[in-house]
Design a protein around this nucleic acid. Structure first.
Lengths: 168, 168
DNA sequence: CTCACTTATTTTAAGTATAAAGTATCTCCG
DNA sequence: CGGAGATACTTTATACTTAAAATAAGTGAG
């Protein structure tokens, strides 16, 4: 089947161009990381100061807010892109603090259903409002008519990266 | 990984437009976060599998690689945008494992100079090479002629966010 | 039925992260 | 000088994170 000794490059770019593309890719990655770190850090700080709350806890509530009938616990790690083991103590504390309930399913005793409580929902809405205005404040300087364009590009990037991860 | 829904406007624009901008900002933030999480997770996984190494450790080496004469320890938290206390155990382990040295300055005994060892530099170069090709693999599908444009936009965004954080 | 498999969740070990308090050293004003 | 305050770094307490092992419950082939 294979004939050539050294498999020919998929894209026959010359060394210099390839080097340049490498650097451009690295720059993109570093910028992406810097932006996210910067915003995330600021949001985290404010969550802590204003509400004595953390972002992972908020993220769980955000998922449950749109599910009035609750969610199978196992759905959370998938949606939040975190490991299952990570979620256990976070959910524990949210239950303990009265924001959510955790009920075993009676169809399958391995499964648990998590559901926001009334107080949880109230607290979430209050925090979500602040979260939104903090974000608006941080991003205010970015031209409104270019928000969607940038979002699309990132969407595209996300799809590309996901595909690249799927293949092997 | 904050995931908020929408809430009322903040700046003195009116109604519908403001709502729309608000949602566009949230979408942008979620996409940014998703891209970074996705790429970071994959890079972390590979670092671990291939080199039994972590990204924070790699990041420290990356900073020291460009400083043949070493770096004042206090410079690291600034460059890496992490807290100083966080760095202590990471640097400890890198010293322990022989990748770097930590020497007290004799001009100011509070100050420490960290410097890569020969083996550290060798290990770093090997890992950096893989890091680069992993990134190239993940980003390969993104048009090379648009890399710089996206990077510029993120650069701009970073500046805007930083300014917004400065003001208060 | 039962034993191997699968699935849902928790536990554990190791590492990363922050904020805040602590220690040591330096600087400089009075 | 000498002590107040600044600076460099570490320690502590708490929380998040993953990978991998453990537990527990369902599923299905023989």
């Amino acid at each position: 089947m294979a004939v050539a000794k050294e498999s020919p490059p998929v894209s026959p770019k010359s060394g210099v161009d390839q080097e340049a593309e490498y650097r451009a890719q690295t720059r993109l990655w570093l910028r992406l990381l810097a932006c996210t770190t910067l915003i995330e850090g600021e949001l985290r700080r404010r969550f802590r100061e204003e509400f004595d709350f953390t972002m992972p806890r908020f993220d769980v509530l955000a998922q449950l807010d749109r599910e009035p009938s609750g969610l199978v616990l196992g759905e959370l790690p998938k949606r939040l892109m975190v490991s299952a083991g990570n979620l256990t103590p976070i959910v524990d504390r949210l239950v303990e603090d009265g924001y959510i309930t955790r009920t075993p399913s009676n169809l399958d005793r391995r499964v648990q259903i998590v559901c926001m409580t009334v107080e949880g929902r109230k607290a979430f809405r209050r925090m979500a409002k602040s979260h939104g205005s903090w974000l608006a404040e941080l991003l205010a300087g970015f031209p409104a008519d270019r928000l969607d364009g940038l979002t699309s590009e990132l969407d595209e990037l996300k799809g590309i990266v996901r595909d690249a991860m799927q293949k092997p």
